[in-house]
Design a protein around this nucleic acid. Structure first.
Lengths: 102, 102
DNA sequence: CGCTGGTATCAGCGAGCGATGATGTGAAAG
DNA sequence: CTTTCACATCATCGCTCGCTGATACCAGCG
């Protein structure tokens, strides 16, 4: 088993603003206007980040009139959680697997 | 409660090479020489990344003669796992908390 | 001591990416 | 239909950050 974490997914969440968006969306389903209010970022900037989050499969869009609501996909976060848990688990036994000095 | 994840920590793990290092260290405790062999990166490059990981509290150093072994701190990964689990949990109920269109 | 090998630090370069402004699209309101 | 508003796309700028090379440091070994 190859305990690993998807690099692209973490890279996407590595941006502070995107992580903030994800944190906000974890509480409420919001549209771009709300996110502009909450984060203080410009609409264009947010739209770019939302595109990244969408393509990474982190969020889903739900059109509502002329508004676009964004909701998180909990499975993705749960998957990340499991992957990190597996890494942590593996790391606990790694202290003994010390490769010999060359 | 403010379900959030440490942005700096994720940012550190957002780099592909650093994530690769963490994945490798999750199986074995290695020194820089080993990491150079495994990743193919230059020693200088790796040393820089190890410094970042060290300052982020992800790894610990353990000198062994003129070698320096790196080991993961499982608590950090476990903490990340919990934080993502909390986010996922919160996200599951967020679908209903839809803020009204302005 | 001088030499060798493992590792850390520093300065500089360059690509990648986040932020911004202008513009396009599409749907409701009038 | 025209206007307005929410949102997306595109091109561009600027800066961060990862990579590299030179160099310093430290620990063993002869």
């Amino acid at each position: 088993m190859l305990t690993s974490v998807d690099p692209d997914l973490i890279r996407v969440l590595g941006d502070p603003l995107r992580l903030r968006i994800v944190t906000l969306l974890a509480r409420e389903t919001l549209c771009t206007t709300h996110l502009v209010e909450e984060t203080g970022a410009k609409q264009t900037n947010l739209s770019n980040h939302m595109k990244v989050l969408r393509e990474a499969g982190v969020v889903e869009t739900e059109p509502c009139g002329r508004f676009t609501y964004y909701k998180l996909k909990p499975e993705v976060l749960a998957g990340l959680s499991e992957q990190f848990a597996a890494l942590a688990d593996s790391a606990r036994t790694a202290s003994e697997n010390k490769r010999a000095c060359p």
